[in-house]
Nucleic acid binder design. Structure first.
Lengths: 140, 140
DNA sequence: AGCCCAACCTAGAACAGTTCCAAGGGTAGG
DNA sequence: CCTACCCTTGGAACTGTTCTAGGTTGGGCT
């Protein structure tokens, strides 16, 4: 599949320096970053990028379906560049790090559907990442 | 099982009027409310309840394990009083209504664990509820 | 019953994340 | 080179949540 920036260009999106930097900051990796992390990474490359542009661009990408947005217990949204491949998530309960994983979709028995039409299933595995496990049991 | 307020009293929790009202506002029903809805409902019964007390009380209940907290796409946390019975959620993509459902936990293959220690699995079935299905396709 | 003190509650200020806004800037087409 | 128009910017505004300082109260003790 062609890279994100190419797809964007093909859609007639005006590809400015800021937008390119932001799109590239998302990385192809399956790590899900917060808007603020995108802002930091982008600024490391192009120091004049503004926070507003990061938010604008992320929201546009989400609207185009090039990015998935997901909420997180800490209140910050995370952005997921992996929209091609169906996947679920593994989230560290300590630091909030979020990775893509493959797992079977659970099924919802008919008698549990309450008349709803299913659209999608999201699975989140909550876990402790190696770094957070090392710190020992959390106080409390 | 004994009701929430009794369990709280048995833990030596000081049961003030405010706390009782807040705990009761959560209802025993399988409906998941936001902090602000709890605030509104509580205030309908005891008008002097403050927002801070609602937040404090909800957080204490979560800390005690008497309530589950869950984030939602709109940025507001929801609180789930059903902690006895393991369950997952069915969420309407139209109106945000959230119900409890029973479904098997999916398993995460070893090679997908990235060294994390699993703690829990959350499943969210996204769907359209009967009411929202009737309204026809949403405008974009 | 009345006292006392830690635990509670309140209103409002402070915060964090996100969105909005008015003004300035860059770029493609003419 | 000019002109439009879209993009970007910094800061103000908003929303949900937490913190703070000071007043209030439940309940053990006398």
């Amino acid at each position: 599949m062609e890279p994100l920036v190419d797809r964007l260009r093909n859609r007639g999106w005006r590809l400015t320096a800021q937008r390119r930097v932001i799109a590239e900051s998302m990385g192809g990796e399956h790590v899900h970053v917060t808007a603020d992390e995108v802002f930091e990474r982008s600024r490391a490359i192009l120091p004049e990028v503004s926070r507003a542009t990061v938010y604008n661009t992320l929201n546009e990408l989400v609207g185009m379906g090039e990015l998935h947005e997901m909420s997180h217990a800490d209140g910050r949204k995370r952005y997921d560049p992996n929209v091609e491949e169906r996947h679920h998530h593994l989230v560290c309960v300590g630091c909030g790090r979020m990775l893509d994983v493959q797992a079977d979709d659970p099924r919802l028995p008919d008698e549990q559907r309450h008349g709803f039409e299913l659209v999608d299933v999201e699975v989140t595995f909550r876990a402790r990442c190696p770094d957070c496990a090392h710190v020992g049991a959390p106080a409390t």
